[in-house]
Design a protein around this nucleic acid. Structure first.
Length: 410
RNA sequence: GUGGCCGUAGCUCAAUGGUAGAGCUCCAGAUUGUGGUUCUGGCUGUUGCGGGUUCGAGUCCCGUCGGCCACCCCA
């Protein structure tokens, strides 16, 4: 029996890595004053249909429940956020700064960096229309990565502005119905041959290429760049109007984070979506909003591919999980005294382990070694003394068992 | 969903169409109560699964499932 395609088992090492990532995310998000929330894993399929149109259903992990309801495992959190915010609009002061770590699902053939299930950190600011919110989010995205040890030579935030392209298309009298199609072509332009892109752009091709080659900009982008400079984070960002993001609901600044090597998919992405909450709430609530998401899969791959970052993670995982004291039951008749002392040490918050069954002393030392213990305490012929051994130095000393706590639990 | 490549022990991989192997891991020993080294021994396979060709298939063919890659799509 295997897990379903695209779903993961988390063995202890994987779980430790996941916990490390989540802990870093939470710590940095809180540093920025964000509070954690969550919503249901299962939502009515209509919630996503309403936001993205009927074609989204093909990508959903959806089914009909026993009450004949059409439901879907959430593919993303933003529609839920819009629903929740609209429903509780008056209960919170604005702006809202909320984050969440949902597990999200999609029904698609899996590839590297893209499974049918993943966790993604979502950070959103609701109710603030100024560029300050955009900058704050991008700075947060950068700091989230800095917390893992990534530097500006590892990752880059590519900044763009949907508004820039809106002006571009409006000036050229392109009907709004065609905007989303054209934006998708631009989004894809760096991944396909230029002549193919030109063919799909038609009469706009010359203007678009000229803009891409010269590099576009906008007032908003200038504000964002200035804001990042003020924070000392500008080296992490570069303006690149080729980024438009696939989602139709983005309305202003958009950005994606990539590894500098360009080997992996986007690590994170987001932007401003000022009209989505109104759209999803049938205008019951209208709040400007912006946010981004960072997935655990691509991030995990980049951590593993970046030696300094990977070593840092291993060091943190070791510090958090390794056994500190191993109790060696050298004589089985001393087992109950040994367990009693182990319990007292655990009460002090120490990570303590011992062999559950009778085992040779050499075997028990091997266990201590493998568990990463720094100290071994022998219970045997020395009783009522115990032998305390520092496993790194090999030095061993006798200590009266009543004084074991003060000796090792300092 | 479409196409290409791949699938051998828990892991990494061998095996001109001719009896399925190695390393690592794991387990047990190397005389009394002290460590990741060393030595010895041991376990695990319906070669993903099901058909077919052949005297004979891990090897060739078809299907299927799973994985990787590209497309599609991108939260």
């Amino acid at each position: 029996m295997q897990p379903l395609p695209g779903f993961r088992d988390f063995l202890p090492t994987d779980c430790a890595k996941r916990n490390y990532i989540f802990a870093s995310w939470r710590e940095v998000a809180r540093r920025y004053g964000f509070v954690e929330w969550d919503g249901p894993v299962l939502e009515p399929t209509d919630l996503y249909r309403k936001k993205s149109g009927p074609e989204i259903v093909g990508q959903l992990f959806n089914f009909t429940d026993k009450g004949e309801r059409e439901v879907a495992m959430r593919p993303e959190l933003t529609p839920t956020l819009a629903r929740v915010v609209a429903a509780h609009d008056r209960e919170f002061k604005k702006p809202l700064k909320w984050f969440s770590i949902p597990q999200c699902f999609r029904y698609e053939k899996q590839q590297r960096g893209r499974l049918r299930e993943h966790f993604q950190l979502n950070c959103d600011i609701i109710g603030e229309a100024s560029a300050d919110a955009d900058v704050e989010l991008i700075a947060l995205a950068i700091d989230l990565l800095r917390a893992f040890g990534f530097t500006s030579s590892d990752v880059v935030v590519r900044l763009s502005d949907r508004g820039f392209w809106g002006d571009f298309l409006r000036v050229r009298n392109v009907p709004e119905e065609r905007w989303s199609e054209l934006l998708q072509i631009i989004d894809k332009s760096e991944r396909e041959p230029r002549d193919k892109t030109a063919e799909r752009l038609g009469s706009l091709a010359t203007d678009v290429f000229q803009t891409l080659d010269s590099g576009g900009t906008s007032e908003r982008l200038d504000q964002v760049v200035a804001g990042l400079q003020a924070r000392g984070l500008a080296e992490f960002a570069s303006v690149d109007v080729r980024i438009v993001r696939g989602l139709a609901y983005y309305s202003g600044i958009v950005f994606e984070v990539f590894d500098r090597g360009g080997k992996l998919r986007a690590i994170a992405g987001g932007g401003r979506y000022d009209h989505l909450i109104a759209q999803l709430s049938d205008d019951a609530c209208d709040l400007p909003a912006a946010g981004f998401a960072m997935g655990d899969v691509v991030l995990g791959e980049l951590i593993d591919a970046t030696p300094a970052v990977r070593d840092r993670m291993h060091a943190r995982m070791t510090a958090a999980y390794e056994i500190e004291i191993f109790v060696v039951v050298a004589k089985e008749e001393r087992r109950s005294e040994a367990v009693k002392q182990a319990q007292l040490l655990r009460d002090r918050g120490k990570r303590v382990d011992y062999s559950l069954g009778a085992a040779k002393v050499g075997k028990q030392f091997q266990m201590a070694e493998q568990l990463g213990a720094r100290t071994a305490v022998l219970f045997g012929d020395e009783w009522p003394n115990v032998a305390v051994k520092d496993l790194a130095s090999g030095k061993q000393e006798l200590v009266p068992h009543e004084r074991l706590l003060e000796h090792v639990a300092r």
